[in-house]
C-alpha cells in the first residue's frame, strides 16, 4: 500500500512537470481505464460519424461536392484508426473495443444519433460538429498520454479541411436562393443545440472531469470549451446572415463572451441512454457491416497463409 501511494505521487509529479506518459510507463490503473474509455469512445465517434455523412455521398449535388465528401468520410475512417491504434497501446484489443461498441457498453458522441435529412446538414456538420470537435481536439494535442497526443496532432491537421468545406457549403446555401437560405437556417436550427451538447455535461455535473484535469488528460473544462466554441461560432453565423436559434444569446460586454440559454439536458441524457432518433439504426448498421465483411477478413487471412506457404516452399526448393 505504501509503495502504491508513492508510485501514484511520483506519477502525479511527473505529469505536473509536463512530461508525457508512454505505453510502457507505470500509470495508475484508473488513468489507464479513463484513457481506454475516452480514446475508444473518441474512435467509435469517428467511425459512427461516417454514417450520417455517407448518407449523402450518392446524392451530392455536384461531382466536386461528391469528391470532397468522399475524402472527408475517408478521413473519418482514418481518424478512427489512429485512435484505435492509440487505445491499443494501453493493452486493450481492437476486437474488445468493437464488441463494447456493438453491445452498447461503450458510447460514442451523441451528435451522430441525429439524422441528416437535407444536403445543408453536410455543411452544418462540417461547420458546427467538426468545429466543436476541433475545439476539443486542439486541447487534446497537449494531453498527457503520448500516443493520444500524437494521434490528435495528425487529426487536427486534417480536421481544418472538414470545417472549412462545411462552412463553404453553408455559405453557398446562405447566399443562394431564398429556398436555399431557408435550408441552411433550418439545418442550423436542428444542429445548434446538439453541437453545444458535444462538450458534455456542465462542470458541476461532470464528476470525472476534475481527475482528468489533474492528470492533464484534459486541460480545459467542458463549460470553458463550450463557451470558446460559442464565441468563435456566433460571428461566423452572423457573417452568413443566419440566426442562432437561441433567444437568450447576447453579447456580454463585461465578460467579453456571449451569454446563452439553458441547454436541454434531459434531451442530452435521453440520447445518451439510447433514445435518440438514430441510436438503434447506427449500431445496427455497424453490426451489419461488420458481419457482412467477415468473409473478407477471413479470405484475406486464408490468402495470406497460402502466400506464406508458397513462399516457404519456394525457399526450401531453392
Amino acid at each position: 500500500m505504501g509503495t502504491n501511494i508513492s508510485l501514484e505521487e511520483k506519477f502525479q509529479a511527473y505529469v505536473d512537470a509536463e512530461n508525457k506518459v508512454e505505453p510502457k510507463d507505470w500509470m495508475p490503473e484508473k488513468y489507464r481505464k479513463t484513457l481506454v474509455r475516452q480514446i475508444s469512445q473518441h474512435a467509435h465517434s469517428e467511425v459512427i460519424g461516417m454514417q450520417p455523412e455517407a448518407n449523402w455521398i450518392t446524392r451530392a449535388p455536384s461531382l466536386r461536392a461528391k469528391l470532397i465528401l468522399l475524402a472527408k468520410v475517408q478521413d473519418e475512417a482514418g481518424h478512427g484508426l489512429y485512435l484505435y491504434s492509440a487505445a491499443e497501446t494501453l493493452g486493450t484489443s481492437r476486437d474488445q473495443m468493437i464488441a463494447d461498441l456493438q453491445s452498447g457498453k461503450a458510447k460514442y458522441s451523441s451528435i451522430f444519433n441525429y439524422p441528416t435529412p437535407s444536403w445543408a446538414d453536410m455543411g452544418t456538420i462540417g461547420w458546427l460538429v467538426d468545429g466543436a470537435a476541433i475545439q476539443n481536439q486542439v486541447m487534446l494535442t497537449r494531453t498527457s498520454y503520448g500516443p493520444y497526443a500524437r494521434a490528435m496532432v495528425k487529426i487536427c491537421k486534417e480536421e481544418s479541411f472538414h470545417q472549412r468545406q462545411g462552412y463553404e457549403i453553408v455559405m453557398k446555401l446562405a447566399q443562394g436562393t431564398p429556398e436555399q437560405k431557408k435550408m441552411a437556417q433550418e439545418s442550423l436550427n436542428r444542429w445548434w443545440w446538439p453541437s453545444l451538447m458535444m462538450f458534455g455535461p456542465s462542470d458541476d455535473n461532470s464528476p470525472n472531469s476534475e481527475q482528468s484535469m489533474r492528470w492533464k488528460i484534459k486541460r480545459k473544462s467542458n463549460d470553458t470549451l463550450r463557451q470558446e466554441f460559442i464565441d468563435k461560432t456566433v460571428p461566423q453565423a452572423h457573417y452568413l446572415g443566419l440566426t442562432i436559434p437561441d433567444p437568450d444569446l447576447k453579447w456580454n460586454e463585461e465578460r467579453g463572451s456571449y451569454d446563452f440559454g439553458e441547454i436541454n439536458w434531459d434531451e442530452f441524457y435521453n440520447v445518451i441512454q439510447g433514445n435518440g432518433p438514430c441510436n438503434k439504426e447506427r449500431i445496427a448498421h455497424h453490426v451489419k457491416a461488420h458481419e457482412e465483411g467477415a468473409w473478407v477478413r477471413e479470405a484475406a487471412l486464408a490468402y495470406a497463409e497460402k502466400e506464406a506457404k508458397r513462399k516457404e516452399n519456394r525457399t526450401s526448393a531453392a
Binding site: A71, S85, A86, K154, R297, L301, Y303
Partner: peptide, 22 residues
Amino acid sequence: VGSLHAADADMAIKNARDVYTR
C-alpha cells in the same frame, strides 16, 4: 506514425498507404 491490423505484410503496406499517407 502508428499501427494497424492486416492479414500480412503486403496488406499492411497497402493499408498504411491509405491510412497514413493520404
